[in-house]
């Protein structure tokens, strides 16, 4: 990864991702937090592209930006105005400590380890390879994921289905 474009892109995207993630923590208004979270997700998608993972990048946009954040917006809208506060609990100090410790440890480890990276270029095309892997090597987990999604959907429907009333 020598060319200037990728380096600039990495720093810009990293700044975007981390900056909006920090803003998500700090901002009080939950809707704005979700909007910033979407920005952060988009930054991560961009980082995937710098890692030549185009399929995952697009899936990231599709699922995180298109579905999960929309679900969050929906949940926020269905709760009252008082529920739109993004304040912290009294776990703030332990949280900061723990998170800081975590960041410090992982960074230290990743800097300290000799990763012995073999430089190989990016991928030409990941989508078909992933598809083949999913239906060949990982076919069991793939089926399980499908079952999981089904069960999750049924569970979600059952959870919000009002008891005792049969909706037409």
């Amino acid at each position: 990864m020598e060319d200037t474009g990728s380096i600039v892109a990495f720093w810009l995207l990293a700044a975007l991702t981390l900056g909006s993630a920090l803003a998500v923590v700090l901002i009080r208004d939950l809707i704005r937090a979700v909007v910033l979270l979407i920005t952060s997700f988009l930054g991560v998608a961009g980082l995937y592209i710098t890692l030549s993972a185009d399929f995952v990048a697009v899936v990231q946009v599709l699922i995180y930006v298109g579905a999960i954040s929309v679900l969050m917006l929906f949940a926020i809208m269905l709760t009252p105005r008082a529920g739109r506060n993004n304040a912290e609990t009294f776990f703030r100090i332990p949280g900061i400590l723990l998170a800081g410790l975590m960041a410090f440890t992982i960074s230290l480890v990743s800097l300290d380890t000799d990763w012995a990276v073999v430089e190989r270029g990016g991928f030409e095309e990941t989508a078909s390879a992933i598809g083949e892997a999913l239906l060949d090597k990982y076919v069991l987990p793939f089926e399980l994921a499908a079952v999981l999604l089904l069960v999750a959907m049924l569970g979600a429907i059952l959870l919000v289905h009002p008891e005792g009333t049969d909706e037409e």
Partner: peptide, 25 residues
Amino acid sequence: DLNVGVLFVIAITSINSIAIFISGW
């Protein structure tokens, strides 16, 4: 000419609704 063009199209067009949501909100 992305090799995941179709998926890209689906992913990007879903942002439209978020924009609508944000402006309405």
